[in-house]
Write a protein that binds this DNA or RNA. Structure first.
Lengths: 209, 209
DNA sequence: CCACACTCTGACCAACCGGTCAAGTTTTTT
DNA sequence: AAAAAACTTGACCGGTTGGTCAGAGTGTGG
C-alpha cells in the first residue's frame, strides 16, 4: 500500500498556510526591516494574494510579532545544553556550537531579532523583561557556580554571556560582510568548522576553563 | 577683545546645516531603520522644514549614503592604534578600548552600520569590497606577524577580528537589551569599565597574549 | 546700490502602503 | 443535498511618503 497523501484536514491546511506566510515574512523582514517590508512583497514571496495574508494575520504588526516570538522560542530551547553540562568546557562549548549552528541555518531569524532589539524592542519588550531576564539570571547562576567550584576564572558572568551572544550571532547578522571578506563566497563547511573552533578556543581558554 | 562671533561665511553655514541634518538623520535611521525613517521625522528632529532637507540632500537615499559613509570613515580612523603597537597586548587592548568607546559615545552610528550590513549593504557594497578588504588584510598581516614572533597563540586572525568587532559593537547595537538586563538603567561609568575589562581579559588571555 | 546667486519654505502631487470588503469558491456539518 | 462555516481574492480606500516647484527672502561681489 502506497503512502497515500491523506487529504489534509482544515486545521492542517491552516497551519501550513500560516507556516508558509511566516517563513516568507521572516525572509522579507530580515532583508528589508519592519519599516521597509511590505505586505505585498511578503505575499509575493509566499505566492499568495495580499488579501489572504490579512485573513490569517489581521495586521502587519501581528504578523511581525509572531515571527519574532517564534524566533525567541527557538533561541531559548537551543540553550538547554547549558544546564545539563558538568562544567564550562562542555556547557559553554556546546552552547557555542548550538548558537553557531542556528546562525548558520536560520540567519534570517537572527537578523529579525537583531533588528527588533536595535530599534528598542517595540513589540517584545515584555518578553525581554520577563523571560529573558529570568533565563539570563539562571545561566549566570550556573556560571557563578562553576567559578565557585574553581572550574574557570572569576569572570563576570554577564559579560561572558554578552560575548557569547555577540560572537555567535555576528556570523548571522553580519554574514554579508563576512561573505564579502571571504571573496564573495559563503563560508564553506570547513570554514564554518574553523570558525566554531576559533571561537571556542579563544573563549574557553580566555575564561580559564 | 572678546571672542566675537564671526559672521559665518556661506560655506560655513552650509556645512553647519549639513551637519545638523546628518546628525538628525543618523538618529532617526538608527531608531527606525532606512525603511521606517521618514524625511518628515528627520526634518522635525533637525528643526527644519522638510523641503529644506531636499535642498541639501536631493533624495532620502543620498542622505542615508552620506550618513553611512561618514560612519565608515569614523570606524577606520579609530583603528590606527592597531599598527603602532609593539605587541598584541597593547594593540588589541587599545583597539578594544577604542571600539568600546565608540560604541558608548556613538551607538546610533553603530546601529546604522549594522542595519546597512544586515540588509546586504545595498549602498556601501563597493566600500566593503575595496577599503574594508584592504584594511582587514592589513590587520591580519599584523596579527600574523605577532603569531610568527611567538607573541600570541596561532589563532586564525580573521576570526579574531570578527570576534573583536562582534563583541565591541554588541554593546551599541544591543544596548537596549543590555539596558533591560541591567534593570532598565543604562550602564554606569563603572559598569562600562567592567565591561571593557572583562572583554579585554577574556580575549587577551584567550589568544595567549 | 544694484544685480545676481544662494538659501529657504508652504503648498502641492503622483505613487504607494496597510487594511477593508463584498462576492465567489471550497469544505465540512447536518 | 442543503445549509453553514471557512477560505480566497480582485477591487477599492483613506492616509502617508518621497519628491517637486514657484516664489519669497537674504547675503555677496561689483
Amino acid at each position: 500500500m502506497p503512502a497515500r497523501p491523506q487529504p489534509l484536514s482544515r486545521k492542517d491546511r491552516r497551519r501550513e498556510s500560516e507556516k508558509l506566510i511566516l517563513r516568507a515574512a521572516e525572509k522579507v523582514f530580515a532583508e528589508a526591516g519592519f519599516g521597509g517590508a511590505t505586505m505585498q512583497l511578503i505575499a509575493d514571496v509566499a505566492g499568495l494574494p495580499k488579501a489572504n495574508l490579512h485573513y490569517y494575520f489581521p495586521t502587519k504588526e501581528s504578523l511581525y510579532r509572531q515571527v519574532v516570538e517564534s524566533i525567541f522560542q527557538n533561541w531559548l530551547t537551543a540553550a538547554d545544553v547549558f544546564d545539563s553540562a558538568p562544567g564550562p568546557v562542555e556547557g559553554i562549548g556546546a552552547y557555542i556550537d548550538a548558537k553557531m549552528e542556528i546562525s548558520r541555518r536560520y540567519p534570517d531569524g537572527s537578523k529579525v531579532w537583531a533588528s527588533e532589539v536595535m530599534h528598542g524592542a517595540p513589540v517584545i519588550q515584555d518578553y525581554l523583561e520577563t523571560t529573558l531576564v529570568d533565563w539570563t539570571e539562571g545561566r549566570m547562576a550556573v556560571i557563578q557556580r562553576w567559578i565557585d567550584e574553581g572550574r574557570m576564572d572569576p569572570i563576570d558572568p554577564r559579560h561572558l554571556l554578552y560575548m557569547l551572544w555577540a560572537t555567535t550571532q555576528h556570523y548571522a547578522d553580519f554574514g554579508h560582510q563576512i561573505e564579502t571578506l571571504n571573496g564573495g563566497a559563503p563560508l564553506s563547511d570547513a570554514q564554518w568548522q574553523a570558525a566554531k573552533a576559533s571561537v571556542k578556543a579563544i573563549i574557553l581558554k580566555g575564561i580559564g576553563a
